[in-house]
């Protein structure tokens, strides 16, 4: 696994977000620092959905937060709307924030329990003084209707009165209030039942079309991102393993880690006995990552080369880029 390299970057005119060599470090003590994200690059074209997939601790949420400048970036650049978010001052970052919004994993704890639904959705409009009070109220009704919540019935109730799926709908309405260009969804459905999951995924697709959104979708579950993604980026211990379109990723995963992720998804059909690769153990500590390819300690195909040299991303054709010395056929 590896990581570095930028062959997958496209230089088209309508790039919304371009991340290059992004590194995010956290200091554990004065001497030791852990790199949660170590040298990630990708770009995102208007209207695309990029899914970032990996296990807990691979740095995917840190990456999402770093894109929004919610965390200090150690090095690298995040180009959004013509500015490098890592170089401009705080006030300039704040002025860009309405254009980039985030939906969080736990829909219940990410909404203030003392606010009514109407207050939750109108708060961004008030902060940014968008329109008169009357216009704001019309906008809130429109947003709530569009996410399938009846403002007349639910508008004056508080968030804790709703189920997880409904809270996630309210979060979506709130994040769309300022009509952002970029929406980052951090595990938006992992706290929900499968039946509700499908509803929220469909809703996100509808909202994407309706508001012309570009999305980053963070998840640990490859099956969830299948329907929504234009491209999928697989992360392991802060590095990129593979970046590909969904069809080529699911049909022929090139990276051994991607293959393991694909085969861990349970298939609701007992007659299908797929050859399953169950990964042993857990990711090593990012404080002291393995040399060379970071996945080599759990990889069935690891050789000496993997310990000494970090694989670079290379073009496998068909829109598939992989960072592996011994990719799968």
């Amino acid at each position: 696994m590896a990581g570095s390299g930028k062959v997958h970057m496209r230089n088209t005119g309508n790039t919304v977000l371009s991340v290059e060599d992004l590194v995010v470090e956290f200091a554990l003590s004065k001497k030791i620092a852990v790199q949660a994200v170590s040298g990630i690059s990708f770009d995102l074209i208007q209207g695309e959905t990029l899914s970032i997939v990996g296990e807990s601790g691979c740095g995917k949420s840190t990456l999402g937060k770093a894109i929004l400048s919610l965390l200090p970036v150690t090095s690298g650049s995040v180009m959004f709307a013509g500015s490098d978010m890592t170089k401009i001052d705080k006030e300039a970052v704040r002025n860009l924030r309405p254009q980039m919004q985030m939906i969080f994993q736990d829909p219940i704890s990410s909404l203030d329990p003392r606010y009514t639904v109407r207050q939750l959705v109108s708060e961004p409009l008030e902060i940014w003084s968008r329109g008169s009070a009357e216009e704001q109220s019309v906008k809130v009704d429109e947003l709530l209707n569009s996410v399938g919540i009846d403002p007349a019935i639910a508008g004056d109730r508080k968030a804790y009165e709703f189920s997880g799926g409904q809270c996630q709908r309210i979060s979506i309405a709130r994040s769309l209030a300022l009509e952002p260009k970029l929406l980052i969804c951090d595990e938006p459905v992992s706290a929900l039942d499968v039946s509700i999951q499908a509803q929220i995924l469909n809703l996100l697709q509808d909202m994407k079309e309706r508001y012309g959104l570009t999305m980053v979708f963070i998840s640990h579950d490859l099956s969830v991102v299948k329907a929504v993604s234009t491209r999928i980026l697989v992360m392991y211990l802060g590095k990129v393993c593979e970046i590909a379109t969904p069809d080529s990723l699911y049909d022929s995963p090139k990276h051994h880690y991607t293959y393991a992720l694909v085969s861990s998804v349970p298939i609701p059909d007992p007659s299908k006995k797929v050859s399953r690769v169950i990964l042993e153990g857990e990711p090593p500590s990012p404080v002291d990552p393995p040399s060379g390819c970071r996945f080599r300690t759990r990889c069935p195909a690891a050789t000496e080369l993997c310990a000494t040299e970090e694989p670079q991303l290379r073009d496998m054709g068909g829109g598939n880029y992989v960072a592996c010395h011994h990719p799968r056929d």
Binding site: A198, N202, A227, I267
Partner: peptide
């Protein structure tokens, strides 16, 4: 309503 990896995706998911 379960997203399937072993079947082609149709874009939208079936919901209850």
């Amino acid at each position: 309503s379960i997203p399937r990896l072993d079947q082609k995706s149709s874009g939208r998911m079936a919901v209850i």
